[in-house]
Every structure is written in structure tokens, then in C-alpha cells.
Design a protein around this nucleic acid. Structure first.
Lengths: 208, 208
DNA sequence: CAAGAGTCTATACAAACGTATCGGTCGCCA
DNA sequence: TGGCGACCGATACGTTTGTATAGACTCTTG
């Protein structure tokens, strides 16, 4: 699969990727333009030339992550590629830095990340309400479910340490995925989605 | 209940509390000594006089949170005060700023927070292994369970926004607590602990 | 080939920051 | 009562930061 837009592989993209990695690791405030420039192997002035200000660079990272996630959802869910090996391989190769950035953005107060959180809650809520027409507190359940799943992303460093395996390595993702399916009541993922996820994991497990 | 040590209520404690609140809101790097001084209504020099360096102040916050949490666990769990109204009231009054700080510390790379995470995973793992002697991946389950629960703390801002209620207000905590019990398979909290938590929540609910 | 837009580096500067230092005030005890 | 230590404020200094500016190189285009 080709990059998300033609302007990738360019210096501008290299700077953005370096910025995403550093923002994710240290937070926005603790990351310096000079550090980004060094990581991208360019001069500090060039960072400013491409993005103007640090805040604009941060927004560019936000927008890139958002468009990437939307595209992967479209290709994966809408176009039914979730079980295609090349899709899975591509996600495993490109997603980790973006997920780490998303996790940090959620705590660092990025408006884009907040919007994405709300969006995920809404989607989950509709799904829950569709599945269970009782008078349960679907809003709270959807919120908590979203926060719990994203919590693993946000705390990926601690999860990886406790597991002794990188969360974003195939083995780590597999263990965490199975543990999640074990812990959460199946009916809240939707029985259908639950089975799909479990068989997907089992298929991946069988491959290695 | 009195403060955790006699030196509270002092200027030193005011500075520490202000630092914890700002660290939690903005992260350590984005928080300035001058900002802390202003929030605590003291001079910037005084902050340095009491804690020496910013890093030492951060460590003092870490240690304070850790000792607070340990004390609450001792008083609450070990001494069986979990259902005493005055204990609950005290926790609801004092815990929020500390939990917010803990959430931020987990992402900001505090060694103390990492240690606390590992500790929670270990406790949870023993609990799971005790309850279910199968060959399941207890380590992964304990890690994911811990990360999911702490994830709600870390993402409290988003949870509160999505709920329309402050997570650390009684109503918010109640809704989230019930949603958690709904979402997670009862056997992984331990049937006993699960029932205890549910009746506890119901009692709180009945009171209002 | 000339010119100009795009790309990149080097240097400079003002602001903000952590921290060190000095001076002052209050309360306790000999 | 005098002084001494703890507590607190004001100021200053060196560093780091984001950003502005000026110049060099490259590549396309007319």
C-alpha cells in the first residue's frame, strides 16, 4: 500500500514523522524544534520553513494521524479487508508510531484527539444501543469501553514492560488482544464482532 | 482524617499541592516554577528554598502520592473500612487531585508511577491465578485489566466530557463504576470482590 | 542561458526558564 | 534582650527555547 499522500517520502514528511515520534515520547512541550531537526537530519530553520511554528507542526501531526486512521478504517472495515494478510501486515508496520502519538495527544490536550475520542464513543454507543434495547446507561458503557481500549494505547509503555514484550510487536499485540477478549463480556463487543475478532486472532496465532 | 503527615497545611505542603495540580494538568515540562509559586501564592525563590530543584519537587510529589495511596489501601482494604461512609467521603474529597497526578505521571515517565503500575499488575495477577488455576495467560490478563482501569484515570478529562459529568464527582464516579462492572466479566474481579463492589455502588446509589 | 521559485543552512535575537545569591523578617531559646 | 536558625522575598545570571532574517544551492521553466 502506498503512503497516505504523494507528499510522503519528502523532507517535509521526514520532519513530520520525526516530530510525531518525539511528541509521542516526550510530549509536545518537552520536544524542541532543534531536537526534531536533528532526528530528521535537517537544520532547525528548515523545520520552520516547512511548518512555520511549532503549533502548526503539531496540528499537521494531528491531521495526519486523523486522516491515516480514517483511511485505515475505510479500507479495513468498510471495504472488508480486515482479514487480508497484506492489510494486517501494513497496519502492523505503519500504525505503531501513529498510535503512540495518538495516545500522547489524548493526554496533552490536542483538540483533534479529543474529537476522535468523542467520535469513537458515539460509534460505540450506537453499536451498544443497537444491540441491547434495554434502558441501560449506554452512554457510560460506551465511554468506559472506549477509555479502556484507548487506555492500553496510552499506557503502552507500561503494558509492554509488564508483559516483557513490545505491545506493538506481533506477539505482544496477540497476547493483549486475547486478554481483552477474555476480560470483556462478549455481548458488549457484539456477539458477531466478538467472534470475528476471536477467529481473527486465532488465525494469526495459527500462522506462527 | 488528618493529613498524611504533620508537615501538611504548611507552606511546603501548599507548594507541593499546587505543583501536583499543575503537573497533572500540563505535564512536568510545561509547568514552570513561577507558575507553581503563583498558584501557591508564594515567591518563586521560596519554591526553590523548600525543594531545591524542579526535579526534587517532582519526586516529592511522587512520594506523596505513593504514600497516600498506600495509606488509603491500608485503611480501606486491610482494615476493612471500604463501606464506612466517612472513609468514602474522605476519599472522594482528597483523592481526585492525587489520581489526576498519578494519571499524568504514568505518561510523563515517572519511575514511581511505573513502580506502582507494576505493583498493581502483580497484585492483580496473584488474584487471578488464585481464582483460576487454568493455564490461561494470567500475566497478560492482569496487565490489561490494570491498564484498562488506570486508563480511565489517565483519560479522565475525556471521560468527563463524554459523560457530561465530572468523573470525580459522585454521580460521575457512580456511572463509571457501574459501567465498569457491566463491561468486565465478573469472574475476573473475583466473584466475591465483584459482589462487594456492586453492593457498595448500590448502597451509594440508594443514598442519593 | 537566465531567472525565479522552491529548498535548505547559518546566524541572530528576544523571551522564558531553572537556579543561584543576597537580604530581610519572624520566632524561639539561652 | 540579643542572637541564631528557619522561613521568605527580590534580584540576577547563564542557558535554552521559539522564531525571524539573510544568504546559498538546486531545479525547473520560458
Amino acid at each position: 500500500m502506498r503512503p497516505i499522500s504523494e507528499e510522503d517520502l519528502t523532507t517535509r514528511a521526514r520532519i513530520r514523522d520525526a516530530a510525531m515520534a518525539l511528541f509521542a515520547e516526550q510530549g509536545v512541550k518537552a520536544t524542541t524544534i532543534r531536537g526534531i531537526a536533528e532526528a530528521a537530519k535537517v537544520s532547525p530553520g528548515l523545520v520552520q520553513h516547512h511548518f512555520g511554528t511549532k503549533e502548526a507542526l503539531r496540528q499537521a501531526c494531528d491531521e495526519y494521524v486523523l486522516s491515516y486512521l480514517r483511511e485505515q478504517v475505510t479500507v479495513g472495515v468498510t471495504d472488508h479487508n480486515l482479514d487480508k494478510p497484506e492489510f494486517i501486515e501494513n497496519v502492523h508496520r505503519t500504525a505503531p508510531p501513529l498510535m503512540k502519538y495518538l495516545g500522547r495527544a489524548l493526554v496533552d490536550g490536542s483538540p483533534a484527539a479529543a474529537a476522535m475520542f468523542d467520535e469513537l464513543v458515539s460509534v460505540t454507543e450506537e453499536h451498544l444501543a443497537d444491540d441491547d434495547r434495554s434502558e441501560a446507561d449506554h452512554r457510560a458503557r460506551a465511554t468506559v469501553l472506549t477509555a479502556m481500549k484507548l487506555g492500553i494505547t496510552v499506557l503502552h509503555e507500561h503494558v509492554s514492560r509488564a508483559l516483557g514484550t513490545d505491545l506493538y510487536a506481533p506477539q505482544g499485540a496477540l497476547r493483549v488482544g486475547k486478554a481483552q477478549l477474555d476480560l470483556i463480556r462478549p455481548e458488549f463487543l457484539g456477539r458477531e464482532l466478538f467472534d470475528q475478532a476471536r477467529t481473527g486472532l486465532e488465525k494469526v496465532e495459527g500462522q506462527r
